[in-house]
Amino acid sequence: MGEFDAIRPYADAEVPAVLARLLADQAFLDIITHFRFPRLAGSFGWLLKPLIAHRLRREFNGIDSVVKLQDKVEPYVDRTIERATDGISYSGVEQLQAGSAYLFLANHRDIVMDPAFVNYAVYHAGLPTPRIAIGDNLLQKPFVSDLMRLNKSFIVHRSLSNRRDKLAAFQLLSAYINHSIRADGESVWIAQAEGRAKDGDDRTDSAILKMFHMSRKDEPFAAVIGELKLTPVSISYEYDPCDQAKARELYIRASTGSYTKVPGEDDQSIALGITGYKGRVHISFCAPLSAPAEDAKQLAQDIDRQILTSYRLFPVHYLAYAQWSERDPALAVPSAAELFPAAELAAAQREWQKRLDACPTEQRPYLILQYANPVRNQYRIKAGLEL
């Protein structure tokens, strides 16, 4: 057994066997059947599942590598992504060089779509897609683990409770990320913090930066980070399909002091995040850090400034900020009407009002917060203030 076998993505030689296992997995076929035929799956699922399995086996026959699999599914992924958006744009990808591997550190709003949009941008720029860090809490079903590891995902063990086990897991994770970039020449995507930024306040956890260094403690921190070509990535959603659920969770946490997920909640978030309306989406690749700070906390603040200033603000963000009870009057934030054409602003006002109307009154401040925080953060940086 190899050093990284417990967490690494599947290798090319494993692809045919894993595909065969997936196409015999009844839970996986159930999901595909409900997704493809939502009205018929209940009554005729027993008939549809064998037909779908047969078609998938025929379509994926001869797929014997991860690249071939990605090329095969990319058109389907693109259609799914594009159906739920009003357009995807990206910037900074021209700074990435073919043949180089990067450590993409991104803000985190959606479980599946954050890395999917980074993959979309990189793939369409003609570059290899990165390996994706994914928490083991999302891999409770065997077919989900197989799907993710086929798509270059590697596992982050977050559900460990024993301190010694956690330390060993982070040591292994650090070694794998360094090995992927330095030895395999494969880029890595990882979120800037554990868990989504449900309040729209994107911040880098310095503990993650320290983790990158754990397996190379005998080397200077800044040298290790520089060698990994750490590249901040800012992913901007005009609308978050999960914003209502996030507002509810924030309200319950504020009211009771805690929040407990119900079984299947992550699955619902994943499905809604993939298929729900997002408006426009922008992915901004910042320049790889050439002279990272020696201190992890300082480096986290430097990364935050890049991610927050690169975040694309849409009309809805300014509309929410204008309604936010905690907005800072000292910040020179213009109104949405000063920045956007009338037709664009009117469409945003209609969509924003629809979201407000769908949100229970007591939860609305937490809906507003999600869209207002990016404005506050960006204009505080512009004003030279601390975050």
Rank of each mutant, 00 (worst) to 15 (best):
M1R: 13
F4C: 11
F4W: 04
I7N: 07
R8P: 07
D12A: 12
I32P: 06
P38L: 06
R39C: 07
L48G: 09
L48I: 07
L48E: 08
P50F: 10
R55H: 10
F60P: 07
V66D: 05
K68L: 14
L69I: 10
P75M: 09
I81Q: 07
A84N: 08
Q95G: 13
Q97I: 10
Q97W: 06
Y102N: 05
L103I: 11
L105W: 04
A106I: 00
A116H: 06
V118K: 03
V118I: 09
N119A: 14
V122I: 15
Y123C: 05
G126S: 12
P128A: 11
T129L: 12
D136T: 01
L139R: 04
Q140V: 01
P142V: 08
V144Q: 14
V144S: 11
S145E: 14
N151E: 11
N151K: 09
N151R: 09
S153R: 02
I155V: 14
I155D: 03
V156N: 04
H157W: 04
S159H: 00
L172R: 14
S174K: 12
S174Y: 02
N178G: 15
N178V: 07
G185W: 11
E186H: 15
V188E: 00
W189P: 10
Q192H: 03
A197T: 10
A197Q: 07
D201F: 07
S206Y: 15
I208N: 05
L209Y: 03
M211G: 06
S215K: 14
I225K: 09
G226A: 15
V233R: 00
C242K: 07
I252Q: 05
R253V: 11
G257K: 02
E265C: 01
I270E: 05
A271P: 04
A271F: 13
I283M: 01
C286M: 03
L289V: 08
K297P: 01
K297A: 15
A300E: 05
R305C: 00
R312S: 03
P315F: 05
Y318Q: 02
A320P: 12
A322T: 01
D328K: 05
D328N: 12
P329Q: 09
L331F: 02
A332G: 01
V333E: 04
A342N: 09
A343G: 09
E344Q: 14
Q349K: 15
W352N: 05
K354C: 10
D357I: 10
C359T: 15
C359I: 12
Y366D: 12
L369E: 11
